[in-house]
Nucleic acid binder design. Structure first.
Lengths: 207, 207
DNA sequence: AAAAAATGTTGACGCTGTCTACATGAAAAA
DNA sequence: TTTTTCATGTAGACAGCGTCAACATTTTTT
């Protein structure tokens, strides 16, 4: 159970922990299999006992990111704010905030093509969970009556597109000409999401 | 002037041409300096006479992408549609369309941190030109009166965030649960941009 | 206690980005 | 025209990377 200097005990988790740390410290281009092996004090080929290749490790890392996102959005829901519209806005804000706090991780999460069904089920599921959390916040937040002819899922996609776009642009520094501080960006994001919610009820058609 | 088997003549452009081709064919991970040298029939170190390192070449490639985007949006404006609001929507649609047509290039364009002033002036300028084209379409498209207390630039950022988010999610296949075909995605994008335009006049505050 | 499975190590391979030293051709200076 | 200089090519080396095969050690199962 203690480390016996040969078998590590829980290398898989250790690799992911080190990976997360290295990811934000050095960026995704500094995240190598061998660096991870070094960071966990293990030989350079040892990680391959736990991940078939680098892509699989990155997928597992991205899945962690999605899990964290889902968790954060879930925490907002659990906070039981009195106003569901306020809850929705806080969720959107939290989404953007998380992306700005861990930009390399955020990029990694969306960097790969969405994994097919059989491909990376862990990642796909984690991504879905995060999306569902956002969808839930939106569904509760919008005026209860305004379902219109637009599916809830489509409305959630609209919100997702908005917060994703803002997060990505913020990360790459392209929002800086208008809003320098993270707080300003968050305020902008919140306004946009509010606008979206009020507009989503009627104006859209199809699906 | 003809190729003398030693001096290539215009290696820089040839490298960028080959790079663009290779980018969409193999993805960004298949785009190596040496592969580019091979593709242009030149030794592996020759590219370094024209680009200090790989990052510089990628930046030049991304600048090309932005130039193409600006050009496409400019073409929409030049088409002189009678209805400026229609022109705005067509521009948004075209933006998303371009990203979906050349996903690897689109990702590359936004993959790096926005270059600082002295860093990659060519890239920065190309990016600005593209943004300005989008801004112009929006400014003409919105009801002439509704300036409100929101700056034109901030409104353009909102539109940019929207189309960028949609494009990125579409590229990564995450819109597929709702809209399978590119045409459906484009229709969705157009609806969202219309919604944004109508909402931007009044609801937003700040900056 | 023996066999099997899981998990580690070592060493190799080809590929990559990039550097240095050298070669060649074109343009500028003499 | 000849010579020098400069831009641009080549060859070869280096370290780091992902990955594989062969082997070692520990744990688990029989």
């Amino acid at each position: 159970m203690a480390q016996d200097d040969y078998h590590h005990g829980n290398l898989r988790q250790a690799l992911l922990d080190a990976g997360e740390k290295l990811l934000e410290a050095e960026g995704v281009e500094g995240l190598s299999m061998r660096a991870l092996a070094r960071a966990t004090g293990v030989s350079h080929a040892a990680p391959y006992r736990h991940f078939a290749d680098k892509a699989e490790l990155l997928a597992a890392l991205a899945a962690r990111g999605f899990a964290r996102l889902a968790e954060a959005l879930g925490a907002v829901a659990a906070a039981q704010l009195d106003d569901p519209q306020r809850e929705y806005l806080v969720a959107c804000r939290r989404y953007i905030e998380l992306g700005m706090e861990a930009p390399a991780m955020y990029r990694l999460m969306f960097g790969q093509q969405q994994p097919g069904v059989g491909d990376q089920p862990e990642l796909a599921e984690a991504g879905h969970a995060a999306f569902d959390a956002l969808l839930g916040a939106m569904a509760r937040g919008r005026a209860a009556g305004t379902l219109g002819n637009v599916s809830t899922e489509a409305q959630a996609m609209a919100v997702w597109s908005m917060v994703h776009g803002i997060t990505e642009l913020a990360i790459s520094g392209r929002l800086a000409p208008c809003w320098q501080s993270p707080l300003e960006v968050l305020a902008f994001g919140e306004r946009m999401c509010a606008l979206l919610l009020s507009g989503l009820g009627g104006a859209k058609a199809g699906n």
